[in-house]
Nucleic acid binder design. Structure first.
Length: 424
RNA sequence: GGUGAGGUGGCUGAGUGGUUUAAAGCACGCGCUUGGAGAGCGCGAGUCGCCGCAAGACGACCGUGGGUUCAAAUCCCACCCUCACCGCCA
């Protein structure tokens, strides 16, 4: 949610900003019109209510029955009028909040203008150190030979766009989670295993529902949503709470399954587990003060890069352009990992991590504040991928493959795989 | 699922129809005191909206939504949530 005062004072800036994210700029005028109407009715109601309150106090001092009755009679008429006005106000507030909710967070000034992911800007490249002496194979070919990923049987039980991780792939997931929990625990993150179902208010509050409502699984019987990421729960945990300043930055790491309907992605990545309805992910989340959030954003990105470097994976960091930013994000970096087995061995960079500063956008929607001295203010929230298991496994399989079609286990994981050093 | 208790400000907690402008304590802010800190003392201070250059005025808010009443934190109804005990259960 945006600050209405800021919109009132800077309507042109807001229009430009939301247009750069591909959202209709006319929404700004709609919000301002509703805001004005709302304030006008509110003023009217409050003036009358002030008079009514004074009249009520007079009744106490009034000894004469006749005068009392006259006042009470007049008050009844006033009440009927107020009831009508209040009804009108309620409708306008509802419309106002709905419209205001449609406005996305504003991009920070250093975010490049652009339409879609093709306009994202590469800000750093860690290129592959050496080339394969053979033509590297596609992860799915390798994984199916070794019986690590079973898409066919997943289709049998669950339909298209599902995968079953088997044998060493399942062991690797547990190892990856242990490794990354261990790493982030040392950095002061609080580990969390969240529920997979959340309430409507929380889901709305994290700010992902408006732009692509069909993306989420919804269970009508219980009025609950399946989480698309552990972030939904980790941010939502503090709904309507006031945090202590000394607790900030407050950091969580959560491991959960993530559910995505992938509506509108027909034909993309239809094979394998690159794009599936359910995958597991370890996600980082931070709550900070307004001044801390830029530094925290860099910190989360640095952790993601550390993870990449622990595994000696080649990658690019891309600064996301305005048109590709999510609704709540003010600025995002993505990490694209090099997958040498794609394009018949020519290789390709694919998105494996993301890292966003949502400033106070989610905090306003969820009413999450921090007490600073005598005042309370909205916190800033950030999120970043630690390891998205499916895509990270793809990266490991393709980068650690051998000529024989085996897969080496990265040394950093040995301590978590109990002696497993190669998959064959 | 059953029974009972409860939901009040940053926190604990008093408040059963009208000077509640929500007591008190803790925490917080400013000042006094001190070489400095602490303790102590004094003062200030809820949130949101709205009008105003400002001082300040006004309105709303005591889990949420309705209702009763001239008047509701307080009475009534529904719902949500928390805690305790019981039942069931991986």
């Amino acid at each position: 949610m945006l600050d209405i005062k800021y919109i009132r004072e800077n309507p042109q800036k807001v229009k430009l900003a939301i247009a750069s994210k591909g959202v209709d700029e006319n929404l700004v005028d709609a919000v301002l019109a509703l805001d004005e109407k709302k304030r006008q009715i509110l003023l009217e109601i409050e003036t009358i209510r002030a008079k009514k309150n004074q009249a009520e106090k007079k009744i106490l001092e009034e000894p004469e029955e006749i005068k009392k009755k006259a006042i009470i009679g007049a008050l009844k008429e006033v009440k009927e009028f107020l009831d009508k006005k209040e009804e009108e106000l309620k409708k306008i507030i509802l419309e106002y909040e709905k419209t205001l909710g449609l406005l996305p967070n504003l991009p920070q000034p250093d975010v490049p203008l652009g339409q879609d992911e093709n306009d994202n800007v590469v800000v750093k490249t860690i290129a592959p150190k050496s080339k394969f002496s053979f033509i590297p194979q596609d992860y799915l070919t390798l994984a199916e030979k070794l019986d690590l990923i079973d898409v066919a049987r997943a289709a049998k039980t669950s339909g298209s766009r599902f995968g079953i991780l088997k044998r060493e792939a399942a062991i690797l997931e547990v190892a990856l989670v242990s490794y990354v929990f261990n790493k982030l625990l040392k950095k002061g993150f609080i580990p969390v295993i969240p529920p997979a179902l959340i309430k409507k208010d929380i889901f709305w509050g994290t700010g992902y529902s408006e732009r692509n409502p069909q993306e989420t699984y919804y269970i009508p019987t219980d009025d609950l949503y399946l989480i698309g990421t552990a972030e939904h729960v980790m941010i939502g945990m503090y709904y309507n709470e006031i945090l202590k300043e000394t607790d900030l930055p407050l950091r969580f790491v959560g491991w959960s399954s993530c559910f995505r309907r992938e509506a509108g992605s027909y034909g993309q990545d239809t094979k394998g587990i690159m794009r599936v309805h359910q995958f597991d992910k370890v996600e980082m989340v931070s709550f900070t003060t307004a001044e801390q959030s830029d530094a925290e954003h860099k910190f989360l990105l640095s952790l993601e890069e550390e993870i990449m470097q622990d595994f000696k994976l080649p990658y690019e960091v891309r600064l996301i352009c305005t048109g590709d930013l999510s609704q709540p994000a003010a600025k995002s970096f993505d990490i694209y990992t090099f997958l040498p087995g794609q394009n018949q061995g020519a290789g390709e960079y694919r998105e494996t991590h993301s890292c966003s500063n949502c400033t106070d956008y989610q905090a306003r929607r969820l009413n999450i504040k921090v007490k600073r001295g005598n005042k309370t203010e909205f916190v800033h929230t950030l999120n970043g991928t630690a390891i998205a298991i499916g895509r990270f496994l793809i990266a490991l399989i393709e980068n650690y493959q051998t000529k024989e079609g085996y897969i080496k286990v990265p040394p950093i994981l040995w301590k978590y795989t109990h002696g497993l050093k190669i998959i064959k």
